[in-house]
Amino acid sequence: MFKFFKNVAREMRKVSWPKGQELTRYTITVLSTVVFVAVFFAIVDLGISEVLELISKE
Rank of each mutant, 00 (worst) to 15 (best):
E22P: 01
L46M: 11
E58W: 11
K57N: 14
F40S: 06
W17I: 12
F41L: 09
S49K: 07
R25K: 14
S16D: 15
P18M: 01
L23W: 07
M12Q: 12
S32L: 03
I28T: 10
V15A: 13
L23Q: 10
I48T: 10
D45N: 09
S49W: 01
V8L: 14
F36W: 06
K3Y: 07
E58I: 12
A9F: 12
L31D: 02
R13G: 10
I55Q: 04
R10G: 09
R10F: 13
K57Q: 12
V35F: 00
S49D: 12
T33E: 07
K57C: 05
I48F: 10
F2Y: 13
V51T: 06
L46E: 09
A38L: 02
F2T: 12
V15P: 01
R10D: 13
V39A: 11
Q21E: 15
A9L: 14
M12R: 10
L31F: 04
F36P: 01
N7A: 14
S56K: 13
I48G: 02
V44M: 06
S56E: 14
K14I: 08
V35I: 09
N7Y: 06
T29Y: 07
S56F: 08
V37R: 00
L23Y: 05
S49G: 11
L23E: 07
V44F: 02
Y26N: 10
V8H: 11
K19R: 13
V44N: 03
E11D: 13
T33D: 08
K6M: 12
S49V: 04
E22Q: 15
V37G: 01
F36D: 02
G20H: 08
T24R: 10
V37H: 00
K14W: 08
V8R: 10
N7D: 15
F41K: 02
L31P: 00
F4I: 06
K19T: 14
Q21D: 15
K19E: 15
I55E: 02
F4D: 05
F40G: 04
E50N: 12
F4G: 00
K3L: 12
Y26G: 00
I55G: 02
V35N: 01
L46A: 11
M12W: 09
F5K: 04
F36C: 04
T33A: 09
V15L: 15
I48H: 07
N7W: 08
L52N: 13
K19Q: 14
N7E: 15
V34C: 04
S49I: 02
Y26M: 15
K3M: 11
G47C: 02
S32R: 04
L31A: 02
K14E: 15
V35S: 01
I55R: 06
M12Y: 09
K57S: 12
P18F: 00
